[in-house]
Simulated scan of single mutants.
Amino acid sequence: MATLKDIADKVGVASSTVSRVLNQDDTLSITAEKRQLINKVAIELGYLSPIQRKKQRQQQSAIAARTHYKLANGDALNLMVVHCLSPNEELNDPYYTAIRIGIENSCHQHNIALRNTFANNLAANSSFLQQAQAVICVGHFKDQDVTLIQSLNPNLIFVDSNPLDKQCDVVQFDREAASREIVGNMISADVQRPAFIGNDETRLHVFREMTQAHGIYDSARCKVSTNFCIESGYLAMTEMLSTQPWPDVVFAATDIIAIGVYRAIQERDIEIPKDIQVISMNDIPTAQHMNPSLTTMRLYATEMGEAAVDLFMELVAGRQYHKTVQLGYEMIWRKSFAKPL
């Protein structure tokens, strides 16, 4: 296990300096670059403070205490889950929260020892990743993170992404087909000024391709951000409403973005769906209670988490081949966008 001296030797400072930096001592006179380097080296070496080591031992004891299920050889089931979002980001994203709930409920049902970590904390949890019988990776990861996880454990199950193609198990829905259904409904409704708000991924690509093919694409009505959040929806919609003509329909990539879109529209006393229609994807619980209720594509996020644990159970039971589980989706028609006749 890495020590303060190991970090100090690698950075070229005193152990006391390392200790004060890791304890976030703001009174220490040291450059921001050196402070950042010390934190970086600590992560790379997997350093744990005495408090962190104590917490780790407590967590291990708690895991051992509630693991009853044994394999034929006497081993307990041991699963690691890596989340692409930080805890704060996940709290604001009901889709990924639902996936986590599906995983945790299924693990509880099968008495599986479960440990969660996050993409920004992989190095500190490398030993747990190596020891786990498999790793479930939830969401979309940077290439270097995927490479690191794969080097630590070859038994991988990705949920909502497939960065390794056929080299791992996968649980996902057909994002392209679902997007084509949404955009197809918009076109069938004879819209003339469609808009898109979301990330630069499949939903945007499908929207651009299909609206261009029908001669109704306008790049000014495509707002791309790096975040799926209420604020990004609000800011993008505010910008679109600053010029005329307004879009007659908005495809919000997620319901969370749609909440921000609603806010921007309604602050200006514009009516949904009379003036601007809104359609989205996910069907989070809030969608049906929005005013007006949100038309959206229902995705089965909790079930995706459950399916990932099912794949884990198959792996530890001896399955030798990789497997992809593709869940369905369903258009939920509400008041923000009328079903085309």
Rank of each mutant, 00 (worst) to 15 (best):
26 D>S: 12
27 T>D: 10
27 T>H: 13
27 T>P: 03
28 L>T: 07
28 L>D: 11
29 S>V: 12
30 I>R: 01
30 I>V: 05
31 T>A: 04
31 T>K: 02
32 A>H: 12
34 K>T: 06
35 R>W: 06
35 R>D: 07
37 L>Y: 11
38 I>S: 02
38 I>Q: 02
38 I>M: 01
40 K>Y: 13
40 K>I: 10
41 V>L: 04
41 V>Y: 02
41 V>T: 07
42 A>D: 01
42 A>Y: 00
44 E>M: 03
44 E>C: 02
44 E>Y: 03
44 E>H: 08
44 E>Q: 06
45 L>I: 07
45 L>R: 00
46 G>L: 11
47 Y>M: 04
47 Y>V: 04
47 Y>A: 00
47 Y>S: 02
48 L>F: 04
49 S>C: 07
49 S>R: 13
50 P>K: 04
50 P>W: 14
51 I>H: 09
51 I>L: 08
52 Q>F: 02
53 R>N: 09
53 R>C: 02
55 K>P: 04
56 Q>T: 13
56 Q>K: 14
56 Q>H: 14
57 R>A: 12
58 Q>F: 02
58 Q>P: 12
59 Q>P: 10
60 Q>A: 07
60 Q>C: 05
60 Q>F: 13
60 Q>W: 15
61 S>A: 07
61 S>Y: 15
61 S>M: 11
61 S>G: 11
63 I>E: 04
63 I>T: 04
63 I>Q: 05
64 A>G: 12
64 A>P: 14
64 A>D: 14
64 A>K: 12
64 A>L: 10
64 A>C: 10
65 A>R: 08
65 A>M: 13
66 R>I: 14
67 T>E: 12
67 T>G: 03
67 T>L: 04
67 T>H: 11
69 Y>R: 06
69 Y>H: 10
69 Y>G: 02
69 Y>P: 02
70 K>W: 05
70 K>N: 06
70 K>H: 10
71 L>P: 01
71 L>T: 07
72 A>F: 13
72 A>G: 05
72 A>Y: 13
73 N>R: 09
73 N>Y: 08
73 N>I: 08
73 N>K: 10
74 G>N: 14
75 D>N: 13
75 D>W: 05
76 A>V: 11
76 A>D: 15
77 L>F: 12
78 N>A: 06
78 N>T: 13
78 N>F: 00
79 L>G: 01
79 L>F: 01
79 L>T: 06
80 M>N: 03
80 M>F: 11
80 M>I: 04
83 H>L: 01
83 H>P: 06
83 H>Q: 12
85 L>K: 04
86 S>I: 00
86 S>F: 01
87 P>N: 11
88 N>S: 14
89 E>F: 03
89 E>R: 01
89 E>I: 09
89 E>L: 06
89 E>M: 04
89 E>S: 06
90 E>F: 04
91 L>T: 10
92 N>V: 09
92 N>M: 09
92 N>A: 12
92 N>Q: 15
93 D>K: 03
93 D>E: 15
94 P>G: 05
94 P>V: 01
95 Y>N: 06
96 Y>M: 05
96 Y>H: 02
97 T>H: 05
98 A>K: 00
100 R>E: 13
100 R>A: 02
102 G>S: 05
103 I>V: 07
104 E>W: 00
